[in-house]
Amino acid sequence: MAEKKKKIIKTIKVDLDKCNGCRACEVICSAFHAEPKYSSNNPARSRIRMIRHPLRDIYVPVYAGEYTSAECMGRDKYIIDGKEYDECGFCRASCPSRDAFKEPDSGLPLKCDMCEDLPEGEKPLCVQWCLNDALIYEEREEEVEEDVKVEDVEIGLASLIDKYGRDKVIDIMARMAEKTKPAA
């Protein structure tokens, strides 16, 4: 059993009523996570995604959550305030049933990291760039069990194994390791 620890939980409260659908959150998220920072941008790589249906007045910003290898059994519908939403419209998972929260070229899963390498005290970039206050940053202290943090590379590899099978990934890894071997 992992040890209980006090931890700051970072959350973003999403006020759907205030969203104006401009997608600045997607723009700045993808720019911040570019290598080097801000050297490129591409909403398709963003870890926040606007689910937008303007004519149905549906504006839902969703943050990328955990990677999941399986899609849901049923995909339910919700009717809120007379408007029908697909369950996917609120879901944070990078999953096989849709393109959201996957790198467009590699298909690797994306996950919101609250812009963790920002200097202490700075709010995540999407919150900073949302001048309409649809995204509100909050911190609270909680006692949690400390998990072993899984590295991004491991999550990525796990998703590749799910998609292509264990053997194929091992084969390719071995071949690439050979190719990139430092000269003796």
């Binding site: 104006n20 659908g21 401009c22 997608r23 600045a24 723009v27 303007p54 004519l55 149905r56 007045d57 504006y59 949302c130 001048l131 309409n132």
Partner: peptide, 24 residues
């Protein structure tokens, strides 16, 4: 129904208009 923006702009110069009986 809502004040809305263009791409990557915080201003809200447009709106979704829904008149009963007509398409939005």
């Amino acid at each position: 129904k809502r004040l809305i923006s263009c791409y990557n702009c915080p201003m809200k110069c447009g709106a979704i208009i829904s008149v009963p009986g007509l398409s939005t």
